[in-house]
């Protein structure tokens, strides 16, 4: 048992090491690091209050005073983009957390007990997967009223089946392994087996899957903000900022360009890292 955990840890470390040797995934990690720093330090870094309006100075083009210009209410776009990092990061982390919290138990129970339980739970995931994620999230967000918390709930509700499926297949594999059968034979309780043997094995593949999906979550949240089912004004959420700014294209391009670049950069960060992980996991895909 301990040997297996150690083995698992070594494997994870090796995976991390191999991932980091790749310059592209290193770049991805750097971008994510930057995102976290910016989110944490936004109040220190931002030259202005992101909500402070300055009507006399609205729609000012980028300059040394306002690096990214000002928006339709004279708010500093640079400061808003920085604060937006907090929101995107929060959405991404919370969504990942909630969808795995739902997906884990469903997948593990399904895979461990099989039979009726499995059938029932898998039919439920089928139902959720019979739908494109954004459309489902739209419907849920609309039913819940648009707030940031509800965006998280909507995307999580639309996204958990992926993790349930993954957790299920990993559980089924582990269940067949010798040490689990041994534990069952010596009469270990089911909850003990699930917690001590199955769960640790399920965690790392799911976490990897989550990190691969992080970019997608941010894009979905931005999409919801863009069509008006997401964050509320005056929140500096990137999707909402693009949506507000698109009415000022082409004259005041900076309103929607900078938040668009910010989303692209952050998602690129997650994608680069995810790509690196995938490379290590699936050597066929490797470049060299």
């Amino acid at each position: 048992m301990a040997a297996r955990l150690r083995q698992e840890r070594v494997r994870t470390l090796r995976l991390a090491w191999r991932t980091l040797r790749n310059p592209l995934s290193l770049a991805g990690l750097a971008i994510i690091g930057l995102l976290i720093c910016v989110a944490a330090l936004a109040p220190l870094l931002a030259p202005y209050d992101p909500l402070r309006t300055d009507i006399a100075n609205r729609l000012a083009p980028p300059s040394s005073h306002h690096l990214f210009g000002t928006d339709q209410l004279g708010r500093d776009v640079f400061s808003r983009v920085l604060y937006g990092a907090r929101i995107s990061l929060r959405i991404a982390i919370l969504t990942a957390l909630i969808s795995t919290v739902i997906g884990f138990p469903v997948g593990i129970f399904s895979g461990y007990f099989r039979g009726r339980v499995d059938d029932l739970l898998m039919r439920v995931t089928d139902m959720f997967m019979a739908f494109p994620r954004l459309v489902l999230a739209m419907a849920i967000a609309a039913a819940l009223r648009p707030t940031l918390e509800n965006v998280v709930i909507a995307i999580a509700l639309a996204g958990w089946p992926t993790y349930a499926r993954l957790a299920r297949s990993v559980t089924m594999a582990i269940r067949e392994e010798v040490y689990v059968e041994a534990a069952q034979a010596v009469g270990a309780s089911t909850s003990r087996i699930l917690l001590r043997h199955i769960l640790p094995g399920v965690v790392s593949p799911v976490i990897i899957q989550v990190s691969l999906d992080m970019g997608g979550i941010i894009l979905t949240a931005a999409g919801l903000g863009f069509i008006g089912f997401g964050a509320q004004p005056p929140t500096p959420e990137w999707g909402l900022m693009i949506s507000e700014g698109r009415n000022y294209i082409p004259g005041q391009w900076w309103l929607s360009t900078f938040p668009g670049l910010a989303i692209s950069l952050v998602v690129l960060g997650f994608n680069l890292l995810g790509d690196g992980i995938r490379d290590v996991l699936d050597p066929r895909l490797r470049g060299r």
Binding site: L51, R52, T53, I55, Q72, L73, G228, P233, E244, N247
Partner: peptide, 15 residues
Amino acid sequence: VPDPPLPDVAAKIKE
């Protein structure tokens, strides 16, 4: 409602 510029007005009035 998301009917510009009403959201901007709302943001200003909030302030």
